[in-house]
Design a protein around this nucleic acid. Structure first.
Ligand SMILES: Nc1ccn([C@H]2C[C@H](O)[C@@H](COP(=O)(O)OP(=O)(O)OP(=O)(O)O)O2)c(=O)n1
Ligand SMILES: [Mg+2]
Ligand SMILES: [Mg+2]
Length: 303
DNA sequence: CATGGCCTGGAA
DNA sequence: TTCCAGGC
């Protein structure tokens, strides 16, 4: 009996926080910088209009200005020479407060994202079919080749066709997506911030799918689409494999994609990367920190 | 100085 | 407890 987990991540969060304070900059290319003296300051967040010009984090303010002459920089306030992030933290709490109404199991994962265990709420709402009209911002991994709506329709139709185990799990995701649309609408209504979400059966997959359609969209990752996705997904895209460990996996095992890991027996993974790490790799249990207040600790088989 | 500041989890 | 890896 699979859980339904949503990961909500705010879009260009610090930029949105500043734009809410100064709405005249909404819709314009913006970035947030700290310390203006050296090369125009370092950029820590970039709005989507500025990303379209090629501006990214890890760029100096002066470089960004070359790519995007109209860009507006919001400056992080400094207190005794240090950047003061208080207003962003407070804004993050506002979002958590809204999300907390939708589940008693919400896990703050960073300043701008949280995992929400929707399993219980989904159970209560399984009697109603998820309608595509209520999933206007939802994409389904593996079903969007001919367009978002076409894919959504054909997925919903096939999911509600039968009642075997996989159909039932997918129905849970569909209902989870419905709740997630409501959650994201509530966040926007009550805070003015836009966000994206991923809906899947565990935290790692929810986090992964959230990033597939950004900004202001949400993405469902059914189990049936995981193999296809993993078969071309670079190892470093999985949370916690973005650094040296991921690099060493690629080199020592001569693999490129996360799906290639299924070929290796547990003992080989453990010999190369240690007992604990090998086991985590095997189970793909690369969940971020899970704390006590979260029931979101669990295994899932395969992969 | 030249991303920086800050957070969490696991190993040492 | 401190240090390092990984991440926002
Ligand atoms: N190296 C980093 C990464 C992020 N942040 C801050 C600024 C971001 O606004 C916020 C959230 O980080 P995200 O990775 O979620 O990025 P954004 O929210 O800015 O953009 P996206 O729309 O891609 O989520 O954390 C930071 O200070 N330093
Ligand atoms: Mg974000
Ligand atoms: Mg984030």
């Amino acid at each position: 009996m699979e859980r339904v987990i949503a990961l909500v991540d705010m879009d260009c969060f610090y930029v949105q926080v500043e734009q809410r304070l100064q709405p005249e900059y909404k819709g314009k290319p913006c970035a947030v910088v700290q310390y203006k003296k050296w090369k125009g300051g370092s950029i820590i967040a970039v709005g989507y209009e500025a990303r379209a010009c090629g501006v990214n984090r890890n760029m100096w303010g002066d470089e960004a200005k070359k790519l995007c002459p109209d860009i507006h920089f919001f400056r992080v306030p400094e207190v005794r020479g240090k950047a003061d992030l208080t207003k962003f933290r407070d804004a993050g709490k506002e979002v958590i407060n809204v999300l907390s109404r939708f589940s008693n199991c919400v896990e703050r994962a960073s300043i701008d994202e949280a995992y929400i265990d929707l399993t219980e709420e989904v159970k209560r709402r399984m009697d109603k079919r998820a309608q595509k009209e209520l999933l206007q911002n939802t994409h389904i991994v593996g079903f969007d080749k001919e367009g978002r709506l076409e894919g959504l329709e054909s997925w919903l139709d096939s999911v509600y066709e039968g009642d075997d185990f996989n159909n039932i799990q997918d129905k849970k995701l569909a209902v989870g997506a419905l709740i997630s649309e409501e959650m994201r609408a509530a966040v926007y209504e009550e805070t003015g911030f836009r966000c994206s979400a991923g809906i899947a059966h565990n935290k790692m997959l929810a986090k992964l799918s959230c990033g597939i359609n950004k900004p202001n969209k949400q993405t469902v990752l059914p189990y049936g689409s995981v193999q296809g996705l993993f078969s071309t997904l670079p190892v470093r895209k999985i949370r916690n494999l973005g650094g040296k460990l991921g690099e060493s996996l690629v080199e020592e095992l001569n693999v490129e994609f996360i799906g290639d890991l299924v070929k290796f027996p547990l003992t080989e993974l453990q010999n190369n990367f240690g007992d604990k790490t090998g086991e985590q790799l095997m189970k793909s249990q690369w969940f971020p920190h899970h704390n006590e207040k979260s029931a979101d600790i669990g295994e899932y088989e395969e992969f």
